[in-house]
Design a protein around this nucleic acid. Structure first.
Lengths: 135, 135
DNA sequence: CTTCTTGCAAATCATTTGCAGGGCG
DNA sequence: CGCCCTGCAAATGATTTGCAAGAAG
């Protein structure tokens, strides 16, 4: 149950946090903006303010439950934290797809090492036009 | 001379544009925010408004003279457009370094192709702690 | 009970835009 | 001269914060 996940993350179990976490788990769409989550809450008759959505999402991020991305749009996008992966984004419809490539992963480690960087994270984002939008 | 570059880009030659383009060429720092450029203009006794800096930088971007990045900070960063390369950023001091890796470049093309995407662009960003900041 | 949360409105921040005066070609 | 450009201030859009009232443990 989500309650456990919240407790384990050191967060009090509250209605908004439960609802939002549940929604993230339930939803078929993986990447969502704060606004998206907010709207969904409204539609589900949940009375959660946008500010709270931002606060909760930020707490989730700090707790490591969620990852926040700043793709080349203007706003942040959140997704549940799972195994690491990179993104490929359609510049027409905004659809986000995921992938993982060990060759690239490895090269990245090497590159960071070569310049004396202690790598903490990395983000690879391919932009393009998806099959649907090419028609 | 920068004047030619502006004309070729289809932009009228004006004081602000010349000054900003010149500054981008001159500066030893390659990646700058609009704010950075604005401050530099002030220090150089140039009376250029922040709005104009944004406008000029955006025009440069559309003209292909400059690239705009949205790294994981909150604001945009601009750099002169040269050959393509990726970035490695220090999360302590914000220093930006560059690199290019053909293995990765190639894998990216393959990945996009595999999922039917027509790749238009891509951005790889490694985050870490640079040598200086590891002390 | 004490502390952590929330909703709402006001406050920020980065960036954009409207407008009237000026400058380039 | 006409149209593009600029500075300034006001408008935006995304995200954050202050505060008093309400829950969680």
């Amino acid at each position: 149950m989500d309650k456990q996940e919240l407790k384990k993350a050191g967060l009090k179990v509250t209605e908004p946090r439960l609802k939002i976490l549940d929604f993230l788990h339930q939803s078929s769409v993986r990447h969502m903006s704060a606004e998206d989550v907010y709207k969904s809450m409204l539609e589900a008759d949940q009375d959660i303010g946008l500010a709270t959505v931002y606060r909760v999402l930020t707490q989730f991020e700090q707790a490591g439950l969620v990852i926040r991305h700043n793709f080349e749009e203007g706003h942040s996008v959140f997704e549940l934290k799972d195994e690491h992966h990179d993104h490929i984004i359609c510049i027409k419809c905004g659809k986000v797809d995921e992938f993982l490539d060990s060759t690239i992963e490895e090269r990245q480690r090497t590159i960071a090492q070569e310049r004396g960087f202690k790598m903490t994270d990395h983000a690879l984002c391919i932009y393009g036009i998806c099959t649907d939008c090419q028609e």
